[in-house]
Every structure is written in C-alpha cells, then in structure tokens.
Design a protein around this nucleic acid. Structure first.
Length: 444
RNA sequence: GUCCGGAUGGUGUAGAGGCCUAUCAUGGAGCCCUGUCGAGGCUCCGACCCGGGUUCGAAUCCCGGUCCGGGCGCCA
C-alpha cells in the first residue's frame, strides 16, 4: 500500500496537451481558499506548482460532498479526485469536478498569519511561523530561484572541470584570525565551527585536485545586526591551481552572468511572482584599483580615506553609485588591495609587496565575494602569518602542505545569500534563507 | 557593541491625557447568495508588551525592563 493514489498530478500538469478533457485525476495539496457563493462553491487547492480550482455546483453534485466542501478549513491538507473540465472561466483554464474530497489533515484556526497576500506580516512574525510563511507564493519563489542559482553554479563549474568537494565544518583552529568563531565541545577538547573552507581548499591544491568548488555552510560568531549579515551563511568557494587572480576573476564574472541567464530562462513564473525584472550583467566587469577607489571617495565625499583603510559602508555605496552611473552596471571588482588589510594568504605583488593580488567582487549595494592569488611559498606564508600577529604553530596542518610541492593557485568565496539577495532586490538577507540564524534567532 | 525608531485582537493597522466598555482591514463563528478568482451582503467574536510613577483620569506623559525594526561598526 502506498500513498501514490493521493496524487496523480500536480496542478500545473493539467494542460490540454497532457490531459484529456474529462479525465479523472487526483490532486493533493492545501486548501488555499474556499469561495462559497450559495449555489456554487469554489475550493482553491494549492500545491508546490500552483493552484487549481475545484468547482462544486449544488444542484449537480452529491449533497454531502457539497456540504463538506464549503466547510473545508483553510490550509488543511486535502486530496481531491475528480474529472478535469477545461473551462475558460476558470483560472489556469481548467477546473476539477470532484468525486471525492479527502481531508488528510485538518488545520487549526485562526492561522498564525495570512497566506493569500491580503495582509502582509512582518519578517519576525513570518520567521516565527516559517512553515506557514513558506506556503506564500513569494516565499516559495525565492527558494525556487535559489535552487536554480545553485544548480546553475554547479553546472557551470562542473563543465569547467571543477570537482565538487566537502570540507570539515568542525575544526581545531581559526582560518584567518579576526573573525569570531563559535566554540563547541568535541569530546574532551575545544573545537570550532568553521568560518571558511579556505585552508582546506588550499590543501586540496597541494593534493593535486587542480580545480575544486564547495557550496556549504560557514559560521561567524560576530554580533553584527544588519540586513545583510547572517551567523550561518552559505559560501560558494572555488580554488584553482596554476592560476592567478585575474584567471579566477574571469571565472567569477562569467559564473555570475551565466547564473543570471539560467534564472531568467528557468524561473520565469517565480520572477513574475516577485516582480523582478532581471538584467544579465555585462562581462567583463569594471575593475577599479584600490588606489582609484581612494581617489573617487576622497573627491566625492566628506569622508576622507587614508591609504590602508578598509571601505566604509558609505564609501561602498558611493563607489557602487559611481560605477552604476558611469557604466550602467551593478557589478564590479575592486583590485590590488593593500596587503596589510587582506588575509595572510593573499599573495603580495612581487614588485610592490605593499599591494596584494586580491580582489573583492562588489554589487552596487554590498560586497559579494572576495578572492586572491594565494601565497604558495611556505617561507613567505609563515612570515605573513607572523606579521598578522598570529602563531604559525597553530597552522601546522596547513603549512606542512606547502613544504612538499604546492602549486601556485588562486580562488574566491562568494556569499550565496547575498548573491540571491542582490539578484532579487530582497530587502533583508533573511528572506533568502529558509531558517536564518542571526544574533537573536536560534529557532526554528 | 553603539545610535535612532517601535511594541494595540491570530495578522496588518488607526490612535497625540477624558470623545476608547479602542478605528479600519484581514481572519474566525453563523446566515444569505449559481461563475467566484483580494467575490459580495448582514450579524457576532477577538487586542492596548511587562513593572513602577505622574494625574481626578493613561493605549497616549515619565522612569526601568523585555522584545522587534533600521543605521553604523565588522564582514561574505
């Protein structure tokens, strides 16, 4: 005995090309709405792919079935067997004339929030009742697009010869220092949740994997409190051997453009639901050097930046605006950052070691990715760790791999949520995560 | 961490010391209605974050707390 008889089709499968008029089908889903007009009653059934109208005419249908239908409780789970009637008056061009309506699980009422879009709920309310919130067409659309983004990224990278990898999330030491880590208990030892796969993907270069990518969670214990930060995020990381920063920038910009194209092609209805008109970014992206950025900020704002300062939010917006005005594009790179404000593994230029072969990929509104050619020379790496005030001893497991044949390599990491957020123009990054973890929220 | 703002039925809101046994919408219960698609009509139900204070009188003013939102810092 299976439950297969509870559903033969999704609502979106009922089209004249696939289903004959009058055919018997079974749909399963949630009671989206019941519109009772007296002599006729419409039940709107919703599933993952859309909605279907179940139509009951009082005079033409079993009395008990009619009575039961008009009493259906919204958001209950039902399975409806009936005959398909293609009908212009019905939404989607068809309606279902039911023979049997099975209530599989009754929903309590009132609901914690509205699912029809009549009354908008606040983000906090929505996240508290995420299971209901996800039933909204807009929420589902975001995650269908997120799915497409990840699929496109995998497809793009696999076609370029990348191996998908998975590195540990439980680690013994910090990746880069600086960022706060979540400590955990690992049997009788202290361990941490990893803030980045950085060190491990580099080890894979020494392992001869040449081109790897990983899409996985990263954890940051920073107490930031903004619309664009999460304490658990999804990082999209690549690392490439025998490549420099320009090589991996090219991969990145092409990846971004390809992903936009794929979403545009495969997520039409989701984009429509969200009211998003996607424009595929033009490649290559504009490249501004850190020096140029300093000049632009200092000439266009009261804020005075010193060489060696990181970009403030205000400066980021200013540059984003500048690029948008001059190129009409939202994406750009900032390259050649001072070595001292980038992580220790960023490769300094041989002829001007104060500058590093590093870059950030920016969206008009925020930073999306950062990357660099990495240091592959063990002595240089050790001295860089020391000059950032860290003890190389803690990095033994990492440094060892540089002693026995580490190729030159480069890579980047991009925040998946920020990528989706900027793509869709979402106001809050939490909207792009199923169950966001932020400073205050630990459940659901 | 810091600065600013907020908290009223299940949800979203109106409210500026007495017109408040609190507005409107949505929702829930019930009734009417044969083509709805944010259906419509009628009746009913349901709320002032917590603790102190000011005042004859507090949803409204003050103090403390809790929670939420936004900016900045930091970062992806």
């Amino acid at each position: 005995m299976t439950l297969a008889n509870l559903r033969t089709h999704y609502t979106a499968d009922i089209v004249p090309e696939k289903v004959k008029d009058g055919a018997t089908v079974t749909l399963a889903g949630w009671v989206h709405e019941v519109r009772d007009l007296g002599g006729i009653c419409f039940v709107v059934l919703r599933d993952r792919e859309g909605r279907a109208q179940v139509t009951l005419v009082k005079k033409k249908i079993d009395r008990e079935l009619f009575k039961a239908a008009r009493k259906l409780v919204r958001e209950s789970v039902i399975s409806v067997t009936g005959s398909v009637k293609f009908e212009e008056k019905a939404p989607n061009g068809y309606e279902l004339i039911p023979e049997k309506i099975k209530v599989l699980n009754l929903a309590a009422s009132p609901l914690p929030m509205d699912t029809t879009g009549k009354v908008e709920a606040e983000l906090d309310t929505r996240l508290d009742s995420r299971f209901i919130d996800l039933r909204r067409a807009e929420a589902l659309a975001v995650f269908k697009i997120r799915h497409q983004v990840l699929q496109a990224i995998r497809k793009f990278l696999v076609e370029k010869g990348f191996l998908e990898t998975a590195t540990p999330k439980i680690v013994a030491t910090a990746t880069e220092g600086g960022t706060a880590l979540f400590p955990i208990t690992y049997f009788d030892r202290e361990a941490f949740l990893n803030q980045s796969p950085q060190l491990f993907k580099q080890i894979l270069m020494s392992g001869g994997f040449d081109r790897v990518f990983e899409i996985g969670p990263i954890f940051r214990a920073e107490e930031h409190d903004t619309r664009r930060h999460l304490n658990e995020a999804t990082s999209i990381d690549i690392e490439v051997s025998f490549a420099d920063h320009f090589d991996v920038m090219e991969i990145l910009e092409n990846l971004v453009a390809y992903t936009y194209t794929q979403v545009l092609e495969n997520c039409k209805s989701s984009l429509e639901i969200l009211g998003v008109e996607l424009k595929v970014p033009q490649t290559p992206f504009k490249k501004l050097s850190y020096e140029e950025v300093l000049e632009i900020v200092n000439s266009r704002s009261d804020e005075k930046m010193q060489w060696g300062d990181d970009l403030s939010s205000q400066a980021e917006h200013l540059i984003g605006q500048y690029v948008f005005e001059t190129t009409g594009e939202s994406h750009y790179f900032i390259i050649d950052w001072p070595t001292e404000i980038k992580p220790f593994y960023a490769m300094p230029y041989e002829d001007k070691p104060k500058y590093s072969k590093s870059f950030d990929m920016m969206h008009r509104t925020m930073e999306l990715s950062s990357g660099a050619q990495r240091i592959h020379l063990p002595e240089l790496l050790k001295s860089r760790i020391e000059s950032q005030g860290m003890d190389p001893e803690g990095f033994d497991f990492y440094l060892k791999t540089f002693e026995y044949g580490m190729p030159p390599h480069a890579g980047w990491g991009m925040g998946c949520e920020r990528f989706v957020m900027t793509m869709l123009g979402a106001e809050n990054i939490r909207d792009t995560v199923l169950f966001p973890r932020d400073r205050r929220r630990l459940s659901p």
